[in-house]
């Protein structure tokens, strides 16, 4: 479990090793404050949706999951994608409403990021990896939180570097997007070198 957790944060980092959530990753990494907000949302949403999707998959979609309902031959696994994305959208929406109702301060700080997360492929990717690698409920919770932390860590680091880069002399054509890619590559290199830790 510890190993799964650490691997999800560093060596199997969703952003840096699997390139997931890249669009958001590059768009929201210009200020550390926004990166922190988005990072926290990612941890919460990944931590919630992965176990939920695991439950839906094992109890309804898996081949033979509906045997108890008299349908042992039914294989609904082709619906995994639609169910996963529907569930993610629903969780984000409910989370938004709860925050708005009960913790308006937090909603003010994080609310902007929540819709962004529905169309973030890191969240969907996490759920699909969970199905592909056949994680148990506990494992998917650990994996969800771990990969959320990993993604948050990566985006905050990139934002911190980009804030500094504004004052550096960079070849004109590389400014902005180009150098972000190069920095992300270097970060990815650093994270990959931690493979085997844990």
């Amino acid at each position: 479990m510890t190993e799964l957790f650490v691997t999800a944060i560093v060596a199997d980092n969703l952003a840096l090793a699997f390139f997931l959530g890249m669009c958001t990753f590059l768009a929201v990494s210009r200020r550390v404050a926004t990166a922190v907000g988005l990072g926290i949302c990612m941890i919460v949403v990944l931590g919630l949706t992965l176990p939920l999707n695991q439950l839906v998959y094992t109890h309804f979609l898996r081949p033979g999951a509906l045997a108890g309902w008299g349908l042992p031959e039914l294989d609904l696994s082709f619906l995994t994608l639609v169910c996963a994305i529907g569930l993610i959208a629903a969780v984000v929406q409910v989370l938004e409403m709860l925050l708005y109702r009960y913790v308006p301060e937090l909603f003010d700080a994080l609310g902007v990021f929540l819709p962004l997360i529905t169309v973030n492929c890191a969240i969907l990717g996490g759920s699909l990896f969970m199905v592909e690698r056949q994680y148990t409920l506990a494992e998917s919770a650990v994996y969800g939180i771990g990969s959320g932390i990993g993604w948050a860590l990566a985006v905050i680091m990139l934002a911190a570097i980009r804030e500094r880069l504004e004052f550096s002399r960079i070849p004109e054509g590389l400014r902005g997007l180009g150098i972000s890619f190069i920095v992300t590559g270097l970060l990815s290199l650093g994270f990959a070198s931690l493979a085997g830790a844990g």
């Binding site: 840096l16 090793a17 699997f18 390139f19 070849p171 004109e172 054509g173 590389l174 997007l177 180009g178 150098i179 972000s180 890619f181 190069i182 992300t184 590559g185 270097l186 990815s188 290199l189 990959a192």
Partner: peptide
């Protein structure tokens, strides 16, 4: 074949396209 190289290549392509 490792992940970081893809970032570098795209970064350079961005540069090339810009120039």
């Amino acid at each position: 074949l490792k992940a970081p190289s893809a970032f570098f290549i795209i970064g350079l392509l961005v540069w090339l396209g810009h120039r």
